[in-house]
Amino acid sequence: MEDRKLIELAKDGSQDAFSELVLKYQAKVFSMVLNFTRDRETADDLSQEIFLKAYLALPRFRFGSEFGTWLYRISLNHVRDYLRKAGKRKTVSLEEIGELPTRDESAEMKEKEQVQESRKKLLHQLLEAIPVKYRIVLTLRDIQGLPYDEISRVLRISQGTVDSRLHRARKMLRKKLAPYLSGEGERYAL
């Protein structure tokens, strides 16, 4: 069933219709939140809160944009709030990357899994080191694969701004990644 029909049914009080929307979008929302939180349980909890917010706000949805765009906007605002609160409690430095498991410590882990895990951790550490507004654009484009025009609609900024933020984000990330490419690249299979 199309999103529009499902939304209309959900607005009329059909929980089944909203459940279908949840099933359709849960992986997208969860993946995006996970990119910011790094923790699966936190991401799961935030995703549930996002769907609750969406459910409560659904009567105000006037089909001014696609449902996915609207849901992404709710998700990003929720994640921004979370990061603002979490940022006050915790700051992550790049030095923490040194604490990743080494080959000796994780002898029981398969090599491939270990490398994958290390790469993920490295990426998250690098992402956390760049400002949120750049991280959001980079996540939406390079991880979530959203087109420029949709990112522009989700963030309510021009495509030119999306382009310049993405450009700066990639530059920042490359600079932070460069030492690992020259020195420790092998450890992360880069």
Partner: peptide, 30 residues
């Protein structure tokens, strides 16, 4: 080369599935 490595690192982040019984837990929260 560095941008290539960055792309490869970002591509590593595939879509993730939420924890089991996401919908059921959501319904009880509703």
């Amino acid at each position: 080369k560095e941008y290539g490595a960055l792309r490869s690192l970002l591509a590593n982040e595939g879509p993730a599935e939420p924890l089991p019984h996401f919908l059921e837990r959501l319904k009880s929260r509703f």
